[in-house]
Design a protein around this nucleic acid. Structure first.
Length: 422
RNA sequence: GUGGCCUUAGUGUAGUGGUUAGCACAAGAGUUUGUGGAACUCUUAGCGGGAGUUCGAAUCUCCUAGGUCACCCCA
């Protein structure tokens, strides 16, 4: 019957089909390995949080909060939002679970979906997966470098090529207000030459003018005071140390004085990782004020997140190879009802012996079953027909040359184990 | 939020006012009865949805929903 799909996926959402799962799994494996090595503990938080957590944490003026958040009111009247990113929820969990009282620095990592209501385009979905790392309670610059190193290592382990890392420092509460004032003055004097959106930015978030791509803004940007020239002593030496660490661990980076990032909570170090294309694969930085802003005690912190779909699309375009899961090498074919019963048992025995065996019990013709065995590229097919079932034997067919031998049914597991070792 | 392009079986496509809507791959069944990879046969399966123009719409118009790309923003 022809049936049109009544439902389709919601805009910007995608199914992750079996073919696609291996990419998520691969990334998960690499990320969790590195997390273990560096002593990060995994955390999951609910996909919904009080909406205020995000407006406070990410910043009221940001696009993410202003227009990209999925929000809902519960029957009880609570105003909740689907997480658009992980940092604020992780900070909330850090505070709420009293993790300040654990040995610091406290290191957490995560892997899961986020939601933003945006027009979908290349590398952008409304539900997208992120993994990330956050370190709490350590203000030393070595952490900033280590976070960058971790992301670089992960992407390298995934065999991605042409990675570039851009870093910058946007100062802290000591020097940023002054710098912002300086910048505002500078741009205000040249307001008439700025593009439309930059005129808006001038009022709302001056820093963002710096990463405007509009051509007419470029010459003005080029002359603008740079954040690096106006850092306070502390921020300056912190950033210098970060760069020294990066040199030491031989991470290729470039300074991007225009890198400011769209979330309000960053202080000092910010960085983004790129490969091909304009979309950042990962981004992050230090956020020394956020824990306090969200109600905890003053706690320095640093972290970053990466977009999993973007990584996957790069893995595909760079044709990255990765270890495949073990393919099933044995197929079990059966013929007749007695044989089918014995096959079911035999299959279970193979499972207990931890040997992968495929079957197609729904098919009754031997031909169709062998066809199936061929499709999955089985090395051996075990044939259990009516005659064999009565005699308690099994035919082992070598699929590469068609040679067959007969073994006792209770010897077949041992026999196959031997054969697979060859 | 703005703009461009796109939408025909599961997938990839042909078809520009009248066709039984064609092809390829995939899937399923079979080609004399218990043996795969080839070939052949058959089967399943489609004009995203709605309205309009017209004697007649996959084809023209509008709306809508998705996809895609760019801006914006971000992972």
């Amino acid at each position: 019957m022809a049936r049109k799909p009544k439902f389709q996926r919601a805009k910007g959402m995608h199914d992750i089909l079996p073919e696609e799962q291996k990419y998520y799994q691969r990334i998960y494996d690499v990320v969790s390995n590195i997390a273990d090595f560096y002593g990060f503990g995994k955390i999951d938080t609910p996909v919904v949080e009080e909406i205020e957590l995000f407006s406070k944490g990410i910043g009221l003026a940001t696009d993410i909060v202003k227009k990209q958040m999925y929000s809902l009111r519960t029957r009880g009247g609570d105003l909740l939002g689907l997480r658009p990113e992980w940092t604020a929820p992780v900070v909330r969990a850090y505070i709420e679970n009293g993790m300040q009282n654990l040995p610091q620095p406290l290191k957490l990592w995560y892997f899961g979906p986020c939601y933003r209501y945006e027009r979908p385009q290349s590398g952008r979905y409304r539900q997208f997966w992120q993994f990330g790392f956050e370190v709490f309670g350590e203000q030393n610059s070595v952490i900033d470098a280590q976070i960058i190193q971790i992301f670089y290592n992960i992407l390298q382990d995934l065999k991605l090529k042409n990675l570039t890392i851009e870093v910058n420092s946007i100062g802290d509460n000591n020097c940023r207000p002054y710098y912002k004032k300086l910048l505002t003055n500078y741009f205000r004097n040249r307001e008439s030459s700025l593009c439309v959106s930059c005129k808006k930015r001038l009022k709302e978030n001056v820093l963002r003018i710096l990463d405007c791509k509009e051509e007419k803004c470029q010459p003005i940007k080029a002359e603008a005071p740079q954040t690096l020239d106006h850092l306070c002593d502390e921020c300056h030496s912190h950033f210098k140390e970060v760069l020294e660490f990066l040199d030491e661990i031989e991470i290729p980076y470039s300074l991007n004085p225009y890198l400011v990032r769209g979330l309000d909570y960053y202080t000092k170090t910010v960085f983004e990782v790129f490969a091909e294309g304009n979309n950042a694969l990962a981004g992050g930085g230090r956020y020394d004020k956020l824990v306090k802003v969200l109600g905890g005690k003053e706690t320095p912190a640093c972290g970053a997140a990466a977009g999993i779909e973007r990584i996957i699309s790069l893995m595909k375009s760079q044709e990255v190879k990765f270890p495949k899961e073990q393919e099933t090498q044995i197929f079990l074919a059966q013929l007749g009802s007695l044989a089918k019963r014995k096959s079911l048992k035999l299959l279970g025995d193979f499972r207990k012996a931890k040997i992968m065996v495929a079957e197609s019990f729904g098919r009754d013709s031997l031909k169709a079953q062998l066809n199936r065995a061929d499709k999955i590229k089985a090395r051996y097919t075990l044939i259990l027909g009516q005659k064999e079932a009565l005699e308690n034997v099994v035919i082992i067919r070598d699929m590469s040359n068609g040679k067959q031998e007969i073994v006792k049914i209770d010897k077949v597991i041992g026999e196959m184990r031997k054969k697979l070792k060859k």
